[in-house]
Nucleic acid binder design. Structure first.
Length: 651
DNA sequence: CGCGAGTGTCATTCC
DNA sequence: TTGGAATGACACTCG
């Protein structure tokens, strides 16, 4: 297997890798589409057009996987896997095989999916196979491309061979898969296995032989002028493809013309599209020997590598259709995380210089794209696709050698929260929250890249159902079991059920946005119930905190009041003491004045008046009379008696 | 080990 | 009717 010039495009959250492969003497245009799900918008469309879900985690809502036991599908699956499609077995990417068979007609509608394929492919890939004018902007205007701008499209794997029994082939495959007859299925299975063995043996031989044919690539170019098997007008089914795969002689490409295959287009600069540049660039493509894996791991270093760089100085830089708008640009895609397993797998499988032609421009694109994600390290961004949790949750049909485990990093989980409910009833397949989708909510985009409380510890085991049991008395046990101590219980539950929103978001979101959010995503009843519980508990938690704060404030205020009243009481007591002292002083003064007055009084005979026998009495007109005390006391008694009588009369 | 403060949660009431 | 605030009660954690 030879890998020719690959290139990346990225647009509207869609990551598109176009590979030109030669496989067992056949040219295969392989378009890999990676998207951050939710891909729900296009799942139905793809389903309606017969696309196959390659992802083992996506067999929901009517989609189905390719049946490895079915001869054609199994073979197809194995072949695609053998091509190094890394995300099929291990990740939650909702990988789709749009098994289009390119007719090569110039109108861009071709393949098993017909026009759907071309539209689903969007830019770049469809044009490569279609022999279009090479203008990527044309494909960008396709229906799906337009929808991709909205941020929802299917990660699509498209394998093209030549020919055009598209929908027919599709129907055949579908019927075979959906056949209920176990015996016939078993026969198909056996046939498929044997056929596969044959094809693998043959293709392996072919690969080895191709490796021994250094001038082989040039023959591709030369064969452009031959038309024994013209991509443009040859009907070529998928079965034909695999038949060829298992039977093509070593130099079968002599019989294959590349005529009708458009020049590399889409993301390559316009000048490349000219026929003159076509062969030149193609030659360049096959002559490069680039270790993509290392380059991916150290893109900057690679970019400075003069040896590697010189090969590409003639190449126009690849055009990256990345949007500067963060709402649309690659929210959850990491080229490094994605490509690393690709390279590893290709290395493992071929031991050839499969990656002999990889443009450094790829890496030039990757970094800005990773940067465009806005603070995510590239490895972090893709981490959810391979997080350990998924392995626990998913009944993996993993190929043991399919993927090299990528580095584990703690990630900002919120924006990349896996949306795969494969492990739940009514699972909807691998989906990822679209940050830009969230941006459409009133929350605003500022929430998207916030740091949130999902501190994933990659070695942390997935919360089991035990940890999903309600807290209460098992709380302590859960804490001991679960090393994810940073996560609250609700966060752990949300993580376990792959709730695509953060707890904080769920709690703080206005009720209208909350309801619209629930209706906008495919959520199971369990998830909705959990989300509502999380919201209720979160609200109540805040309410309890406020309540306690108020209570505390109330207590503090009461304590202040007590202190103030005590201080006021003390002040009043002091004031009363001062008043009593003043009264005593006044009494003393009055006493002294009284005796002073009597000492100066004389009776008719000139003798001093005895104050013990007489008293001073003030009349109403202000005159002062000297009255004997007996009269004063009797007068007081009479007045008192009068007062008593008056009171008795009133009663 | 007991205690108290702090916290989360549930049930209930009220708006 | 629904969402949510308020709050008492209970259980749990932690120092």
């Amino acid at each position: 297997m030879k890998l020719f010039k690959p290139w990346w495009t990225a647009r509207g959250g869609l990551l598109h890798l176009t590979l030109l492969l030669s496989l067992a003497g056949l040219r295969v245009d392989l378009d890999l589409y990676l998207l951050p799900p939710p891909a729900s918008l296009f799942r139905d469309e793809l389903l309606a057009r017969g696309a196959y879900a390659l992802s083992p985690f996506a067999p929901s809502r009517g989609s189905r996987e390719l049946d490895p036991a079915a001869p054609l599908e199994g073979q197809l699956l194995r072949e695609v896997r053998s091509l190094g499609v890394p995300f099929i077995p291990r990740t939650r990417v909702d990988a789709w095989l749009v098994h289009s068979v390119a007719t090569g007609d110039a109108d861009g509608a071709h393949g098993l999916l017909g026009a759907a394929a071309s539209s689903a492919v969007g830019e770049g890939g469809s044009q490569v196979a279609a022999g279009g004018d090479g203008d990527p902007r044309a494909a960008r205007d396709s229906p799906l491309a337009g929808a991709e701008e909205k941020g929802a499209a299917e990660p699509t794997t498209q394998v093209r061979d030549a020919g055009g029994r598209a929908s027919q082939e599709n129907e055949i495959l579908r019927e075979k898969t959906e056949a209920v007859n176990p015996s016939s299925k078993q026969e198909e299975k056996e046939e498929g296995v044997s056929a596969h063995k044959q094809s693998r043996q043959q293709s392996g031989d072919n690969e080895n032989k191709m490796a021994d044919a250094p001038g082989w690539e040039a023959e591709i170019l030369e064969s452009r002028n031959e038309s024994h098997l013209n991509w443009a007008d040859t009907s070529f089914s998928l079965e034909d493809f695999f038949q060829l795969l298992s039977s093509q002689p070593e130099h079968s490409l002599e019989g294959i013309s590349l005529e009708g295959i458009p020049p590399f287009s889409g993301c390559i600069n316009e000048e490349v599209n000219s026929s003159a540049h076509y062969s030149t660039n193609f030659s360049h493509a096959v002559s490069h020997d680039v270790n993509l894996h290392e380059a991916m791991l150290c893109p900057n270093t690679f970019g400075r590598d003069p040896v590697a760089r010189t090969s590409y100085t003639q190449e126009p830089p690849l055009q990256l259709y990345s949007h500067t708008n963060l709402e649309q640009a690659l929210p959850a895609i990491n080229l490094t995380g994605f490509l690393t397993p690709v390279i590893n797998q290709m290395r493992n499988q071929t031991n050839q210089d499969l990656m002999s032609d990889l443009d450094t421009n790829i890496f030039d694109e990757i970094n800005p794209m990773s940067l465009a994600i806005g603070g995510f390290s590239s490895l972090e961004v893709f981490q959810p696709f391979e997080e350990p949790d998924s392995e626990l949750l998913l009944n993996s049909s993993h190929d043991s050698n399919s993927i090299t485990k990528s580095n584990s990093h703690s990630i900002n989980y919120r924006d990349l929260q896996p949306f795969s409910f494969h492990d739940l009833e009514g699972a909807v397949g691998g989906c990822y929250t679209e940050p830009h989708k969230l941006c459409h909510m009133d929350l605003g985009c500022q929430h998207v890249f916030h740091n949130h409380t999902y501190h994933l510890q990659t070695c942390a085991p997935e919360p089991t159902t035990e940890s999903l049991t309600w807290p209460g008395k098992s709380q302590k046990t859960n804490r001991e079991i679960n090393p994810d101590r940073d996560l609250s219980r609700d966060e752990q539950r949300a993580k376990a059920l792959h709730i695509p929103f953060s707890v904080d978001e769920i709690v703080r979101m206005p009720v209208d946005n909350f309801n619209s959010m629930l209706s906008r995503y495919y959520l199971t009843d369990l998830q909705i119930s959990l989300i509502r519980d999380i919201r209720r508990r979160g609200k109540n938690k805040v309410a309890a905190q406020n309540c306690r704060k108020r209570k505390l404030d109330l207590i503090l205020n009461l304590e202040d009041d007590i202190r103030n009243l005590q201080a006021k009481k003390e002040a009043l007591n002091r004031e009363r003491g001062q008043c009593n002292k003043a009264i005593d002083i006044m009494k003393q003064k009055l006493h002294h004045l009284y005796y002073d007055v009597f000492s100066k009084l004389r009776d008719d005979q000139g003798r001093p008046v005895n104050p013990n026998q007489y008293a001073l009495q003030c009349s109403h007109d202000g005159t002062v009379l000297i009255v004997p005390k007996d009269l004063v006391t009797s007068g007081h008694r009479k007045e008192a008696q009068k007062g008593k009588r008056k009171g008795e009369r009133k009663n």
